[in-house]
Each structure stands twice: as C-alpha cells, then as structure tokens.
C-alpha cells in the first residue's frame, strides 16, 4: 500500500465548498456544450499533422530505453514529457485554437 516515492505529487488540498471561479464556469460551459470535446479532437488532429505526436513518441521511447522497460510508470513519463510537450506545440496550432476559443466565448456570451 505504500505509494511510490518517486512521484512528486502536490499536497492534497483541503476540501472546501466554495463558489466556482470564473475560469471554472467557463470550463463547465465548454464541457456542457461539447465544445471541449470538439476542440480536443481538433487539437489531436493538428498535433498529429505537424509531427508533434511523433516527436513526443520519440522522447518517450528514449526515456523508456534509458530507464529500462520495466522501471517506467505512466506517471513518470507524463512528468518527463509534459514540459517538453507544452513547449513544442507549434504557435500556429496555438493560434488556431485560441481563435476557436474566442469565437466560442463570444457566441456563448450572446
């Protein structure tokens, strides 16, 4: 039952009932309308197209190779590639997504 020590987790926050923030409200809106799902699909497609996915795959492979096949957990992998992955998303993709989000927000606010 002892959790793995290698994984850095943030301390468990206290459970407090509070008003949802503005960001959370928007997030909920996105999920409820299904827009989030569509955006994710679009993002997936773009990232595959631009080679980002292959790049991440290569990094993962390299990492697994270095650590040994049996000593890697998904959590570790996520921690390793998340900063690299975030940084290497092409600007064009970000711009397109931002555009989509803006349009949605405008239409949702109306």
């Amino acid at each position: 039952m002892k959790p793995k020590s290698s994984v850095n987790r943030p301390p468990t926050p206290d459970v407090v009932e509070r008003e949802p923030t503005f960001q959370e409200l928007i997030n909920i809106k996105f999920i409820e309308t299904g827009e989030k799902e569509r955006l994710m699909e679009l993002l997936r497609e773009r990232l595959v197209d631009c080679g980002w996915k292959d790049e991440m795959k290569a990094i993962c492979r390299a990492f697994v190779k270095k650590k040994g096949r049996n000593n890697v957990t998904v959590d570790e992998l996520i921690h390793v590639i998340t900063p690299k992955g975030r940084a290497s998303v092409p600007d064009s993709v970000k711009a397109e997504l931002l555009q989509r989000i803006q349009t949605f927000l405008v239409s949702a606010a109306l």
Partner: peptide
C-alpha cells in the same frame, strides 16, 4: 454531464 473529482470538485 460534468464529472468532478469527489475531493477537490475540480473538473
């Protein structure tokens, strides 16, 4: 519709 974490209520 929205799945929330039972601890932090985040989604």
């Amino acid at each position: 519709r929205i799945l929330r974490c039972s601890f932090c209520n985040g989604c």
